[in-house]
């Protein structure tokens, strides 16, 4: 089988992009890529271990991409949009830090986006501090190859401080293994990425 070896920057970009897509509301394309094993293959490469395996095993157990999509949409709605009796895990940073939508954190992020010449698309219906948008921003920074110096500080303050709370809520409320595995994988990836950047910066 023909293979492609990714450069470090390519891998990082791809990772943030894929994680971003996976935390947006699932659509047909993502279901197809998941069901076809493409994303699972990549996750197992980049983050080998039981979480990637668990995620891929569950995806493979679905009867079709359409079946997978339906299950993911219902689960996403239940975990992140609305659920009875309680909405478990909204994907907005200011929900955890301020108990409000579009809080100060969201607006600070807008300033940061603008500082790096990005803005949330007018067509986007999510908040600026939605996890998927934050991840997309990092991807776009990396794509511009302008993000390395910013990434560490930004990622620590703007991303990781609320992910443990989010992860806990996802774990406690998920009815499928997909999102618990995904949030674990994301956290692991960020930990590794930050560690790598720190190591490189120190010249080790």
């Amino acid at each position: 089988m023909e293979t492609v070896e990714l450069s470090e920057i390519e891998t990082r970009k791809t990772a943030y992009k894929i994680f971003s897509r996976l935390f947006y509301y699932p659509g047909e394309e993502i279901a197809r890529l998941l069901y076809g094993g493409v994303i699972g293959e990549w996750l197992e490469h980049i983050l080998p271990g039981k979480e990637a395996e668990r995620l891929q095993t569950w995806v493979a157990s679905r009867s079709s991409a359409a079946d997978l999509l339906e299950a993911l949409q219902v689960e996403y709605t239940h975990l992140f949009i609305t659920a009875y009796p309680n909405l478990p895990a909204p994907l907005y940073k200011s929900y955890y830090t301020e108990k409000e939508l579009f809080g100060a954190d969201a607006r600070n992020l807008m300033d940061i986006y603008q500082q790096y010449h990005f803005k949330v698309s007018p067509h986007m219906t999510e908040m600026p501090d939605h996890l998927a948008i934050i991840l997309e921003f990092i991807y776009r920074l990396l794509e511009k190859e302008a993000g390395d110096s910013l990434l560490k500080d930004f990622a620590i303050s703007g991303l990781t401080d609320w992910l443990p709370q989010l992860a806990k809520r996802i774990e406690e409320n998920a009815s499928l293994p997909f999102y618990p595995s995904l949030i674990h994988l994301l956290q692991e990836f960020i930990r590794n990425d930050l560690s790598l950047q720190a190591t490189q910066k120190s010249g080790a």
Partner: peptide, 23 residues
């Protein structure tokens, strides 16, 4: 970490072609 990432050519094509539209 990140030094040994290899993908099948097909997977690479699909993943690199994937778009995000939020920003």
């Amino acid at each position: 970490f990140l030094k040994k990432t290899t993908l099948s050519a097909g997977a690479f094509t699909l993943l690199s072609g994937m778009k995000v539209h939020g920003m």
